[in-house]
Design a protein around this nucleic acid. Structure first.
Lengths: 342, 342
DNA sequence: CTGAAAGCGCTTACAG
DNA sequence: CTGAAAGCGCTTACAG
């Protein structure tokens, strides 16, 4: 037989008082004698009493649990985000229930339902690449369950959001290549659906324009899976065309390393003949040889901030706040990390 | 005002029957008329009724939630493990509550308490490197909450375990270097505490012994933090000694890539003059140039298997099984991935 | 100062 | 075939 957990009842019986009194004593109600409080607390301590969290949740309609839906976990950026979320949540006594969408909208829907039924106090979500509607999140709004979107967000959904300025990041990367003397700069970008790719591309074009360089569509490639292999393939094409680029800005570090490999194959010297800037500052950017210049994307801080906004909203609401909320979009700074490919 | 969730009571009122009947109808009790069942189910469907999971948990003492304590999340191997756990758990309708020990025993204790108080149905843990006692897990055994350890396990704690055969892995790596013609083989290992390092080192010695090569302590280095930088530094020392090694087996891929960098600096050709084998098959092993030979460590499968053992134990116990359990240790296979450094 | 009662949303043994 | 009652572990308005 397993022992059972200590309940208020156990303490009450040992002390010959009622459960009501024990409960109030532990919560320092003013109408309980100091004598009783002392005894109760002593015994609770001795027996290592811990309130039953399910009973608490049932009664108070609060679970101190937040739900997370993330597109992918084996991923440097997202695992940093998760770490930021977990640390912040933990410091504020929230637990985190984590679910995966695997970048599938269907799975994302399923996970949203699961979290809804689990009665989490709030939801943190980064949308799947596939996701093109947010209907499956409407129920959270209807039931006033706070929701915060981060990184991959939907423009039309009304809620707090935490992102980086992808356009600014793309601009910075491209401007840096220009400053390093590149005149023909290519971009290997991502698919149109997650907004991030589009914005990075916009930043690229903005920098070209600002510095009076022509935009040349033959210097732009669009990845489907955003892999190292695609970077390799597209770089091969770009570098073997008639008037090859001398700088390439890539949508991710993965793709950037693919470019590096292609340059190696073709005996093109980096950074002398070709300069490369990636995006994300993931581990592989540090480890590649030569180490890849990149745009730092503050994953940990995004996670922290998203958790912070969510928990603030939960607690505001719990305090009975009824005004319609003014939703904010927090945009965190990126910055260039110059390493040896530029 | 937020809507409230549909309860049995709401269905009962609309149908003019009692909560009891609704509950039984939904669960297909044989003593309810088909007529009633049909109506109840129809309405439940229409209103999208979902039972309150907290109430269920309170009543049944089952939360369908498993807790996870993991040393680190920004980590290729562990994030694969987590993914395996999550996918398996989800397929079996369990949720996963994830916590981080940051490789600190104190934090691990705190997380264990948290999970205990949250009343998870079972616990999955990979020990912090620091951890040298398992007293903080005894409460789970006392209360018959199943616990499964994986990867970093404690030999003395009685529970199901899932690991790889680190000794075999170390043996395979070293044997491969021998087969590739290396006569002097160095090992850059890890600290003594996580058993894994010790075992990989044992495997290394076993291979040397089997093939009649002398064990030379000057060819063995011990990392503290197991970083790329340490690999770099130790390789520098090894490669500049009088009689340098022609093969190096490293405790991780990180360290292996550090060795690669050192060889580059010293203009030592890999694999011609120096062969390197890492361990883990992490992403950086694929991406380094040349790509690193390594031992594949099946993270995803470890996670799946650990979740499987845990959930089986939970359900066995829930079925009222009272025999003392025969605990198993599942050892998953590793295998060599030969790439271009050997 | 203490305690009896009701209630959070369920399930199930028991009565009719 | 249906329902009243008790109970899971708590909290809190109310009575004494």
């Amino acid at each position: 037989m397993s022992k059972h957990r200590i309940r208020l009842k156990d303490i009450a019986e040992k002390l010959g008082i009622t459960v009501t009194t024990v409960s109030k004593a532990l919560k320092d109600y003013p109408d309980i004698s100091n004598e009783t409080k002392k005894e109760v607390k002593r015994l609770a301590e001795e027996l290592n009493y811990q309130p039953n969290s399910q009973a608490l949740a049932l009664r108070s309609n609060r679970s101190y649990t937040i739900g997370l839906i993330i597109p992918e976990i084996v991923h440097f950026f997202f695992s940093n985000v998760i770490k930021g979320i977990m640390n912040y949540a933990e410091q504020n006594n929230y637990r985190v229930l984590i679910t995966l969408s695997n970048n599938s909208m269907n799975l994302e829907k399923k996970q949203a339902n699961l979290l809804f039924n689990t009665k989490v106090d709030g939801v943190l979500v980064s949308l799947a690449n596939e996701t093109d509607t947010t209907k499956h999140f409407d129920m959270f709004k209807e039931f006033e369950i706070p929701i915060v979107m981060f990184d991959k967000v939907n423009e039309d959904f009304k809620c707090n959001k935490v992102t980086i300025d992808d356009k600014q990041g793309g601009f910075t990367a491209t401007e840096h290549l220009i400053n390093q003397g590149c005149k023909r700069i290519a971009h290997i970008g991502g698919p149109k659906n997650p907004l991030n790719s589009v914005n990075r591309f916009e930043g690229y074009k903005k920098a070209l324009h600002k510095y009076g360089l022509d935009f040349d569509p033959t210097l732009v490639k669009e990845c489907v899976d955003v892999t190292l292999e695609e970077g390799h393939t597209f770089a091969n094409q770009l570098l073997q065309q008639e008037n090859p680029p001398t700088g390439i800005f890539t949508i991710t570090d993965q793709v950037g390393v693919g470019v590096l490999h292609a340059a190696n194959d073709l005996r093109i010297k980096v950074p002398e003949q070709l300069k490369i800037v990636g995006f994300s500052d993931s581990q592989i950017a540090q480890i590649s040889q030569p180490p890849l210049s990149t745009i730092h994307q503050p994953g940990y801080e995004i996670g922290e901030m998203a958790a912070k906004l969510l928990i603030e909203e939960i607690e505001l609401q719990d305090g009975g706040y009824e005004q319609p909320m003014d939703f904010r979009q927090i945009i965190l700074d990126t910055y260039l990390i110059k390493r040896e490919t530029s």
